[in-house]
Design a protein around this nucleic acid. Structure first.
Length: 400
RNA sequence: GCGAGGGUAGUUUAGUUCGGUUUAGAAUGGCUGGUUGUGGCCUGGUCGACUCGGGUUCAAAUCCCGACCCUUGCUCCA
C-alpha cells in the first residue's frame, strides 16, 4: 500500500469542515461585492523575481518562499501573499483606476513554526486612489464581516509615515529603522521594558521614539478613522505601536485582533502600500488593502460550532423498487434548486434512513410503488419524525 | 531553526514504571447482518494500530541511538 501522508504544514478539510469554511467565504464575497470590489484570480505560481522584487516581501519573507524550477530552468515560487501578485498583475494590464478587486485563494509560506504552510487569504485592495475613504472602506468591510460572523474584534490603526517621521526626528539610522519598527510592533506582547532592551541589543535607544509615540494622533490616521466611523465602524482605534512586518507598507496600517485575545495572533492585517505597484511599472500607483486570514478565523469559530453538518444535501430520495421513477423526481427537485441525493447503494429502506440520519440530512423522500400509483411521494421530516403524503410540487415548497 | 514534551486502528485510548503473563485490550467509527415499507436504541459478524531505521537481548510496543512527524514556548505572520 502506498503511504498516506500530507506534506508538513498541509492538511485536508473534510466536508464537515469545508462546509463551514466555504460558508465564511460566501459571506465574505457578498460583503466584498457590496463595497464594490470585483473578483480577480492570479496564478498560484509566480516568477521568483516577481516575488523577490525589492521591498516586495521584505527580509523576513525572503526565506519563506517555496521555490521551484521548471524544466527550462526558470526560477519560480509559490505566492506568499496576494498583494505582490496583484501589483504585478495591475502593472501588466491597462486597468482603469480606481481598481478595486478581491481575491480569495491559497498562499504558501515555508515557515519555521511548521503549522500552516498553506492557508487561505481573502484580500481586498483598492489601487490608484490616495483618498482616506479608500482606507476607510477597507476597515468598514472588516467591521461588517466580523460583526456578521459574531466575532468581537478590535481593529488597530496606525501610520507608517508617522513612525518614519518619529524615527528620522530621533535620528535613528536608516538601516535600523525597519528592525526597530518590528521590535516596537511587539510592544503589547512583550511590554515596554523588553522593547527597550531589544532595541539596545540593536544598538538603538528606543526611549525617545517611544516617548514621541505618546503624542497626538497622526493626521492620516485621524482622517481614515473619521470616514470609517461615518461608515459605521465602531471597533477601530489608533494604536501607536502597531507597525506590521512587511516592508512595503507606506502609510496607514491596520490589524485585527480578537478582543478577548488582543495579544495573540492577528486575524487580518493590511495597509497602504503606495510604492509596491511602482516596482513593476513606471508610474506611481497608490494602493491600500487588507488580507483576511480565513484559516485562522476558521480555527477560532470551529470550536464554537456544535451540530456540525456533514453534507450539503437537503433531501435524500429512498426508492422502493421505483428507481426509474425516482431519478426523474430527483431531476424535478434539482431543477427547482434543491440539493438532492439518491440511493446509489441499493440499500434497504431501513439502512437508507440510517444513512440519512447519520449524515444529518433534514428530509428523506420515500418513493414507493404505492405512492407512485397515487402520483405522490412520502416526505419525511427526519427531525420531527413526521411523514406526509404529498406531490412533488409540495415537496419543493416545503423544503424551500 | 532552538528549548521542552510526545508518537499504539480513521478518532479517543489501556498496556511502557520493572522486557516474557496479549494471537497488543477497549470505546468510538467504517463495512455488513438481525430488519427489501421506515432512522436515532439494541444486537451479531467483520475491518483496522505499536511512526520508520538500526542496536541490546533467548525475547522489544516496552530499554538505547538516529531519522521523521505532532504538541507547546521562542520566532514569524494572515
Amino acid at each position: 500500500m502506498a503511504s498516506v501522508e500530507t506534506p508538513k504544514g498541509m492538511k485536508d478539510f473534510l466536508p464537515e469542515e469545508q462546509i463551514v469554511r466555504q460558508g465564511l467565504i460566501d459571506k465574505l464575497k457578498v460583503i466584498f461585492e457590496k463595497y464594490g470590489f470585483s473578483p480577480l484570480e492570479t496564478p498560484a505560481i509566480e516568477m521568483l523575481s516577481v516575488l523577490n522584487a525589492k521591498g516586495g516581501g521584505g527580509t523576513a519573507i525572503g526565506k519563506e518562499i517555496f521555490t521551484l524550477t521548471d524544466r527550462a530552468g526558470r526560477e519560480l515560487g509559490l505566492r506568499f501573499d496576494q498583494t505582490v501578485p496583484l501589483s504585478r498583475c495591475f502593472a501588466q494590464n491597462q486597468l482603469p483606476i480606481p481598481f478595486k478587486r478581491y481575491q480569495i485563494g491559497k498562499v504558501f509560506r515555508e515557515e519555521f513554526g511548521n503549522k500552516n504552510r498553506e492557508f487561505i487569504q481573502c484580500d481586498i485592495d483598492t489601487l490608484g486612489s490616495i483618498s482616506p475613504i479608500a482606507d476607510a472602506e477597507i476597515i468598514a468591510v472588516l467591521q461588517n464581516f466580523f460583526d456578521e460572523i459574531g466575532l468581537d474584534v478590535i481593529i488597530k490603526v496606525n501610520s507608517r509615515r508617522f513612525l518614519d517621521k518619529i524615527m528620522s526626528d530621533a535620528k535613528i539610522p536608516e538601516d535600523k529603522r525597519m528592525p526597530l519598527v518590528l521590535i516596537i510592533d511587539k510592544m503589547n506582547k512583550i511590554g515596554e521594558t523588553a522593547v527597550i532592551a531589544e532595541a539596545r541589543k540593536l544598538g538603538v535607544d528606543a526611549r525617545p521614539v517611544l516617548k514621541e509615540l505618546q503624542g497626538n494622533i497622526p493626521e492620516d490616521v485621524a482622517q481614515v478613522l473619521k470616514y470609517a466611523q461615518q461608515m459605521g465602524v465602531k471597533d477601530a482605534e489608533f494604536v501607536p505601536t502597531l507597525a506590521r512586518g512587511f516592508e512595503y507598507y507606506t502609510g496607514v496600517v491596520f490589524e485585527v485582533y480578537l478582543k478577548s485575545r488582543p495579544d495573540k495572533l492577528s486575524i487580518a492585517g493590511g495597509g497602504r502600500f503606495d510604492n509596491l505597484v511602482g516596482l513593476f511599472c513606471d508610474r506611481e500607483v497608490p494602493a491600500t488593502g487588507v488580507g483576511i486570514g480565513l484559516s485562522r478565523i476558521y480555527d477560532i469559530i470551529k470550536e464554537r460550532q456544535k451540530d456540525r453538518v456533514k453534507t450539503v444535501t437537503q433531501v435524500y430520495i429512498v426508492p422502493i423498487k421505483t428507481e426509474f421513477e425516482a431519478v426523474k423526481i430527483a431531476k424535478q427537485l434539482r431543477d427547482a434548486g434543491l440539493n438532492v441525493d439518491i440511493d446509489l447503494m441499493e440499500r434497504s429502506i431501513g439502512k437508507n434512513l440510517q444513512y440519512v440520519d447519520k449524515q444529518g440530512i433534514p428530509y428523506a423522500l420515500i418513493v414507493g410503488e404505492e405512492e407512485i400509483k397515487q402520483g405522490k411521494v412520502k416526505l419525511k421530516d427526519m427531525k420531527a419524525g413526521k411523514e406526509t403524503l404529498v406531490d412533488v410540487e409540495q415537496v419543493i415548497n416545503e423544503i424551500k
